[in-house]
Structure formats: structure tokens, C-alpha cells
Amino acid sequence: MEHLFTNLAAAFTGWMITLGLSPVWADIILLLVKWIIIITIITLNIIVLIWLERKVSAFFQERLGPNRLGPFGIFQTIADAIKLLTKEDIVPSAADKLIFKTAPMFFIVVAVMLYTVIPLGQGMEVINLNIGLLFFISIGSLSTIALLMAGWGSDNKWSLMGAVRSVAQMISYEIPLAFSLLGVVMISGSLNLQDIVAAQDNLWFIILQPIAFITYFIAATAELNRGPFDMPEAEQELTGGAYTEYTGMRWALFFLAEYTNLVAVSALMATVFLGGWQGPWLPSWLWIIIKTYGVILVFFWVKWTFPRIRMDQLMSFSWKVLVPVSLGNILLTGAGIYFCKWMGWC
């Protein structure tokens, strides 16, 4: 079981080489196949995830959640997807059409790109980049542009307010986000995610870096636009923020991208802080799924408990609390590493 997927990939490449393809082409085709598989998994996973969030939020609120279609309402998301696909596509007449239309596509492309570097198991990743973590952070911050495009292109005050908020928020939270990961990088000594996983062989980084974990969790919530930091959307205030003018499939793409981001960030958290795919008994790819879902459930739990924070408080929280704390964490980690070396522990 453990090497199921890696063996499959190796067999696939081997088979293509026997067909007379050069190894380079075989690699490229393998990459394409990996992408297609990942996109399929993302889409299928999101169907489950949306259903799960609905169910979980319902349970928090003593409701039942979707329960009409299929056992426990599992097919509800599919029905919704069909509904969204068949809905009329409305583009506001005053909208900046090109920007308005490309924004959701941009958003989802950026979200899917995040999966390139996440190790989904032992030796299972699309590309084993040696700056994987940096890649993840930088690609992750690109989604701001998509939201800004959506807000600008809609030509709507609510959308623009949502977009401006999201830019301000993301820029502020990018810094503690990166800083809190820095401690991990310092300990593991690598930006390669597989190396980071390997470094957690004995001890998960959540134990070595608890402060970093908490600051990363908060900053990631803000990055993901999830409650209590869902400023760009803020249904109750901005009536949907940057997404106000979107309908049908375009809106669904945003929705999809948000969940894709959520899974990616949760997977990264599992990788960086929770030991990645490492774990006893079960195969590695199952472990990462379990850990990712665990983190996702915590995201759900937080969202469905807390009220939304105010914009100015959000900013000041980032600059006055998170940035200093994560900086302090770096200092502490550095001191700790020197102390260890001095003591001869590592």
C-alpha cells in the first residue's frame, strides 16, 4: 500500500519508455498526468469538503445540515454544482469585462498551483522543489491579485471595498505568515518540504514551535479569508464583498478556489507542523489526508464559533501582535539552536 502511487508512476513511465518515447517526454507526460489527477482530486475533494463544512457547521448549531439528497445529503453539493453550472451568467454592463471574467480563473489557477510542492506522501509530489516553502508562500499571496481584479472589475462599491480590504489584509498577514514559518526552516535547515518532513522524524514541529504554529494558524486564517477574518466577503456587511456581482459558474470558481486554498494551506500546516506524511501503520498518503482534514476541521470550528473582527482591529492585530510575536519566535528559535549547539545536543 505504501508505495502504491509511486509504483504506479514508475510503471507508467516505464511503459511509456517501452513505447519508444524518450525519458524526457515520458517525464513531461507523467507531469501532465499528475496535474490532471490532482485537479480531479481537488474537485472531488471539494465536493466532499463543502458537504462536510455544511454538516459540521450544522452540528455546531444543533441543526442537521443537508439531508435530502443521498445518504446524509452527500449529493447535495453535486446538485448545487449542477445548479450553478446551469445558472445565467450575468456580467454587469458597467463592468470591466476582461478583468471581471479573468479574475475567477486566475484565482483558481493560483490555488491549484499551490499543490505543486506539497508532499502528498513519501516521494509523492508533483515537483520536488528545493525552495518549496518559499514557492508556496509566494504563490499563495498571488490570490490577492485575483480578488483585487474581481473587486475592480465589478464596478461596484461593495466589491471594491471588499477587494481593498483583502489587499490590505493579505499584505499585513503575509509577513507574520512567512515569519512564523521561518522558525521551522531554521530548525530543519531547508526550504524543501520533503526535508522538513524528514526533519520531524522524531518530534513534530508543533511541539518545538508552538508559538509559530499559533501565529501561522491565525495568519493563515486571514490569508484564506475565513472567519473570523472573512473581511473581503463579509456577507453581513459587504453583502459578499468582491464576489457580489458574480453569478453562476464564475462565482462557483471563487468558491472552489477558496476551498482549494483551504486544503492546500491545511496540507502545508500538516506538513510543516504535524509531521507531514509520517505516521505509524497507515500508508503515508493516508496520513497526510487524515492530518489535513484534522486541520480543516479546526478551521471550521473556529469559523463557526467566532464573530468577525473589525477591519482596523484586524490590521492592528497583525502589526502590533502577530508580527512582533513571530519575530520574537525567530529570536527565540535562534537562541535555542545556539543553546543546543553549545550544549552539544545537535
Partner: peptide, 15 residues
């Protein structure tokens, strides 16, 4: 707050 929602998570639904 998290504790309260968690408690309700396991309570009977009222729908």
C-alpha cells in the same frame, strides 16, 4: 466559546 460550540456539536439536533 469554542468549548460551547464543541458541546453543542455532540448534542441532539433540534431541526
Amino acid at each position: 466559546g469554542l468549548g460551547i460550540t464543541l458541546k453543542h456539536f455532540f448534542q441532539k439536533e433540534i431541526t
